[in-house]
Amino acid sequence: MREINAKQITDAVSDLCGKANFDIPEDVMNVLRKAYDEEVSPQGKDVLKQIIDNDEIAHNEQVPMCQDTGLAVFFVELGQDVHITGSLLNDAINEGVRKGYKDGYLRKSTCNPFTRKNVGDNTPSIIHVEVVAGDKIKLTMAAKGGGSENMSRVMMMKPSDGLEGIKKYIIDRVRESGSNPCPPVIVGVGIGGTFERSALIAKKSLLRPLNVQNPDPELDKLEKELLASINKLGIGPMGLGGRTTALGVHVIVEPCHIASLPLAVNIQCHSARHKEITI
C-alpha cells in the first residue's frame, strides 16, 4: 500500500487546470496546421489562421486559449494499492480546481440550473474514477466548454437501425450543429453499454490523441469513413464554408443489452484541451 497525501493531488490538479487551458496539445496543433495548408475556402483558411495564432498567443503568454475554460472533467485511474490520506479524493480534486481556476485567471462557469447563479469557484468538477492495478494515480483533466457540449446527444437507437443508422445519426448531428460548436470539431462516439455508459465512452474517446489510430482495424476504417463524410458537409471552419469541418472522429464500442443500441455523440471543439499527470 502506497500512501498519497490529498495535498499532492490538489496541487497536481491546480497545475493541470492552468496548463490544460493554456497549452493546446501538440497533436491538435499539428492537425490544425495541416488543415490550414489544405483548406480551399479563403474564409475557412482565415479562421484556421486565427485559431493557430490564438493558440500560440495562449501558450506564449500563458493565458486561456478560449474564455470558456469549461467545466473541469477528470478521468482518474486509481491504483488499487493507493491509500489517500488527509481528505477524500473528490474533495482533493475540487480543492485543486478552486485553486487552479483562481490562480490561473480562468473563468468560473458552474451555476445553479434554475436560478443560473454562478457557484463562483468552478466546482463541483465532474469526476470519473476507475480502479486499476498498481500504486499510482493517473489524473486526466479535460476542460469542456459549453458550446460544443450543448451540441452533443445520446440517442437510444433501435437495434434494427444498425451501422448504417448509426453513421447517418452521427453525420446528421454534425450537420445540424453547424457553426455552433466552433468547428473544426473532433467527434467522440460511444456505441453500446447503457444510456450513461455510451456518453462516458464517447467523452473518453476524445482523450485519444489525433495522431494515434484506433487499435481496432474495423473501427479505424469506420472513423476514417465518417471523417471523410463529415468533411464533405461543407460546414468548414466556424461554419463559414469549407472542407475542414472535423479534425478527427473517435469511436469506442462496448457490448450492450439485447434490446438496445445506445449511441452517444460528444462534440469537441477545436479548443480540445486535456492534460494528464501521474502521481
Binding site: 486565427q50 485559431i51 490564438n54 503568454e61 478560449c66 458550446g147 479548443s271
Partner: peptide
C-alpha cells in the same frame, strides 16, 4: 457578425 469562437486570446488584443 460572427467572430472566431475559441480565439479568445487573439480577440482580447
Amino acid at each position: 457578425f460572427g467572430a472566431t469562437g475559441g480565439a479568445g486570446a487573439l480577440i482580447a488584443r
